[in-house]
Amino acid sequence: MAHTGVLRPGFIQLRVLDMPAAVEHYTKRVGLHQVTEGKDGRVYLKSADEFDHHSIVLRRAESAGVDMMAFKVRDDSDLDMFEKRIAEYGIAVDHKAASDVDLVREAHQSRITVDHVAAGEQPGLGRRIGFTVPSGHRIELYAHADQSDPKPRTLNPDIWELEPHGMCARRFDHALFYGPNLEEVLNFFTTVLDFKCAERINLPDGTLAIWLTCGMKAHDIAFVKHPEPGKLHHVSFDLENWQSVGNAADIIARYDISIDIGPTRHGITRGQTIYFFDPSGNRNEVFAGGYTYYPDNPTRIWDETQIGKSIFYYERVLNEAFLSVVT
């Protein structure tokens, strides 16, 4: 099996201001299903095309944004392996002599501490390890999830068991986060978690953005440079094709969902896309297509001359909200 370690995005936990409005948005409009509600009021959602227990967690809070994003790893022993590598990463950095430019830069990496979340803290999930990356985002890893209904059949499976509804989201696909210290984030994800950098934007004053993958999608998580740590730009849902993106646009208009931009296309990843907002102001994306990334592919680089095209391929210019509107 070639695919080891971190397999894929597992779930993301979002903060919402109004739980009933959020549940209606994600179930009726985006097209997810509610799996269960926890004793603490958190609501667990999934697509009918996903096997695992849940992929979206909603937590009622006083501010919008993201609590954490979690990735599923292949084996339980991977959790111990990654915990050890994270610990060694910090120590190795601490002991390095700051004798050249690279090492000086690396010496600025702060140690990343791992904590443990017991099995069952979220229904259907095994134990998790968690840590905060230098952009201020909490990332978690886990190896076990129960399956939950609705889910695809495995014997003679139909295209779907339950008719897709709303925007027909097939899975939680990825997230884009905003925060500082992108070089440190890139170094951590690539050297400790074995991610690859599929694409990036380089500006004269440094890295503006990085698109990271742990598998063969063009991205599983991405970061844009931003002075405030821990911010959410968007959570993205996979759709089948361009026609599905058009259907999602019809739903956005029919139900007066707040839109940011689209339907359009990204130069980066090549994905067909709409950005819109949930009832708490968290940006959502529906996303179709995107190229296949193989681990031996080189990193694709965009510079300041084509930055508009990199993000919004058809408009060829960033909209005002892209760099400033986050939760």
């Binding site: 919008a64 707040s258 907002f277 102001g281 968290n282 940006r283 005002e320 509107v325 939760t327």
Partner: peptide, 14 residues
């Protein structure tokens, strides 16, 4: 300038 329009749902603050 253009109105400061962000999420239109009380979340982003612009």
């Amino acid at each position: 300038r253009k109105l400061p329009v962000g999420c239109r749902r009380g979340g982003c603050g612009v």
